[in-house]
Nucleic acid binder design. Structure first.
Lengths: 211, 211
DNA sequence: CCATTCTTGTGCAAACAATCACATAAAATG
DNA sequence: CATTTTATGTGATTGTTTGCACAAGAATGG
C-alpha cells in the first residue's frame, strides 16, 4: 500500500465508487458485484477490482462486495470518515452558489469561513448569516478554525495572489475555480475545477464529429 | 491528423494553452517559446511541442511561436472560432451562477435558453431577463435555437432523466454538474464537472501526507 | 462430499502517455 | 559567409494505465 504507486485515476474512481455505493445503500442493496458497480460508474469491471486491490481484499469470491462495508473502507481510504473545514475566497455568483450547495456538507465538507478582497463586501453577511472577512484576517482565522482546504472562487487575475496568501496562512490544499493555472510550492496541492476546459473538450468533439 | 490518434489529455492541454496565449496576447507578448508556455501551464516543454505537432508545424525553429498565430490555430482546432449555443437545465443556486458567469460568453459559449421542472419557476424570468421554460418546451426550443450543448445543473436524482430528454431533443454533447455518472447512448458525449470528486482527491492526499 | 456455479484477485500483455535527446532549421554574430 | 546560438519537431525510450484471461476461493445443490 505504497502511496506513490497508486494511480491518481484510481483515487478519482474511488470517489465515484463511494458515491455509487452510497446510492446503493439508500436503495437497500446489501451486496454488489464488480460488474454492476462498474456499470454504474461507467468503468471496466476489472478496473474496479484492481482499484480496490491496491488497498486490500474487500470482496468475497463468488459473492461480491458488501455495500456497507466497502463504502466504509473506501471512505476511510479517501479520508472521508471525518469533517473537512474549508475557507472560501471570492464571494461572487459562483462563491455564493458554492456556499449554498448542500452536497458539500453531505459529504463532510464545510465552509467555516468566507473571504473577499472587496471592502464593500467585507463585514456583510451571507444569506446563511456567515460574516464575510477581509483578506487581512485570513491567517488568523485559518489557524483559529484549523482550516485545511482553501477554495478559490476569485477572478482569474486574483487567483495566484490568493493562493500565495492561503499557502502563507498554512493551507496545504486548494481547490481552484478560477480559469488559470496556479503555481504552488513543493508539497502543496492544487486541483482545478475548470468549466471552460470541459466545454472546449465538448466543442472539439462536436467539431471533429461534423467533419 | 487522425481524430482517433490524438490523446484526450492533449485536447485538455490545448485548452490551457489557448487560455495562456490569450493572456500573453493581452500582455503584448508577440512570441513565446515552448519552455515559457509550458511553465505557464504547468507541463513539460516537450509535451507542448508534441501536442502541437499532432496538428501541424506552428513554430519557427530558433525563435518560438507567434502568439497571435498559434492562438488562432488552437482555437480553430478546438472549434472555438465560432459561438456555441447552450441550454441550461436546472435553475438552482448553481444554475443561476452559471448563467451569470461571464467567462462562458468571453469564450464563445452562450446560454440561449434555460429550463426547469419546477412549475413554480417556469414562466418566471432570471435577473438577466431570460424566461425559464418548462421541460415540455425543450425539444422545440432546442431545434428552433439550434442548441448543440446541454448543461445539466439539476439535483443528482433528475440528472439521468434530464440527459434522456436532451438526447431526445437532438443534443449531442452534455456538460453535467450533477454528482452522478450519466449513461449515454453511443455517439453522444458527457463530460462531468464534479466538485466533490475533486475535494475527495484533496482529502486523500492530505490524509496520506499526514501518515 | 463432489460437482457446479459464481465472482473475486491478479499476472501478464497491450495500449496509451510522457519524457528524453538530438537532428534540423532559422537567426544572430563576428 | 562560416560559426555559434537558439528553440522547434520528432524518433526512441521509458513509464503508466488499462483490460484480458484465468486461477483461487466461496457458496449452492444434488
Amino acid at each position: 500500500m505504497k502511496f506513490s504507486k497508486i494511480p491518481s485515476a484510481t483515487i478519482t474512481r474511488l470517489s465515484l465508487y463511494s458515491r455509487a455505493l452510497e446510492d446503493l445503500m439508500h436503495g437497500q442493496v446489501n451486496i454488489i458485484a464488480s460488474d454492476k458497480l462498474a456499470q454504474k460508474c461507467g468503468v471496466n469491471p476489472a478496473q474496479v477490482r484492481k482499484d480496490l486491490a491496491y488497498f486490500g481484499e474487500f470482496g468475497v469470491r463468488g459473492v461480491g462486495y458488501f455495500v456497507k462495508e466497502l463504502l466504509f473502507e473506501i471512505k476511510k481510504i479517501l479520508g472521508l470518515n471525518r469533517r473537512w473545514r474549508m475557507a472560501l475566497i471570492g464571494i461572487g455568483n459562483l462563491g455564493l452558489a458554492l456556499v449554498a450547495h448542500e452536497n458539500f456538507l453531505k459529504q463532510g465538507y464545510e465552509f467555516v469561513a468566507v473571504f473577499d478582497v472587496d471592502p464593500k463586501k467585507v463585514g456583510r453577511r451571507l444569506p446563511s448569516m456567515q460574516m464575510i472577512h477581509g483578506m487581512d484576517e485570513l491567517e488568523a482565522i485559518v489557524k483559529e478554525k484549523q482550516i485545511e482546504i482553501g477554495v478559490i472562487a476569485t477572478p482569474a487575475s486574483q487567483a495566484q495572489a490568493t493562493a500565495r496568501l492561503l499557502v502563507a496562512a498554512g493551507i496545504k490544499a486548494i481547490l481552484n475555480f478560477a480559469p488559470v493555472q496556479i503555481q504552488m510550492p513543493e508539497g502543496f496541492i492544487v486541483d482545478n475545477v475548470d468549466f471552460t476546459v470541459k466545454l472546449d473538450n465538448l466543442a472539439y468533439h462536436l467539431t471533429m464529429e461534423a467533419v
